[in-house]
Design a binder for these strands. Structure first.
Length: 151
DNA sequence: GCCAACGTTGGC
DNA sequence: GCCAACGTTGGC
């Protein structure tokens, strides 16, 4: 899952321990949260639009399932959704809990050098989705490269 | 349903 | 700031 560290970084998650992944306004990304993600799933936290961009840490899904994104009801939010009501929820999101900040930040250029990661969705051309699925082998490889404590 | 215009993401 | 590669909107 991507986040711009200026908006929300792995350090912010570490401080808060958990956060609602609100503000996702892309149907494909939303569908990953509503249909694919389950409590306990592990998440690689990626810093996008950073210098350099790369993988910064580990999080885990802490909500049983996706819940209504509260920002869709907030008229003052840029994520306000006029089509939404309490009976007609448009945007949903999961809650994430902090796991660890990686010992080694692995930058995007470094990820691109890894042959075994060449099929990873994140590295495919034109993939701007902020939530992307990973193969288990890719997840393990990323954790190894980053010196994760869970490997 | 098609498609042009526009908006967004995110690397560089 | 630039721009490729999307996604979305809205007229027809």
């Amino acid at each position: 899952m991507k986040s711009e560290p200026e908006d929300y970084s792995i350090d912010d998650l570490k401080k808060e321990k958990k956060t609602l992944w609100s503000g996702i306004r892309n149907y494909q990304a939303r569908n990953f949260m509503t249909k694919e993600m389950k409590k306990g799933d592990m998440v690689i936290f990626y810093h996008s639009n950073a210098t350099p961009p790369g993988i910064a840490g580990l999080a885990t899904v802490t909500s049983d399932k996706a819940v209504a994104d509260p920002l869709q009801f907030d008229k003052k939010s840029k994520y306000f959704e006029p089509r939404a009501s309490k009976d007609k929820i448009v945007w949903e999101c999961v809650e994430l809990g902090f796991k660890e900040k990686f010992k080694t930040f692995v930058s995007l250029p470094e990820l691109k050098e890894e042959k075994s990661l060449s099929e990873m969705r994140l590295l495919q051309k034109g993939n701007r989705l902020s939530i992307l699925p990973l193969q288990k082998s890719e997840f393990t490889k990323l954790c190894k490269l980053a010196g994760s404590t869970i490997i």
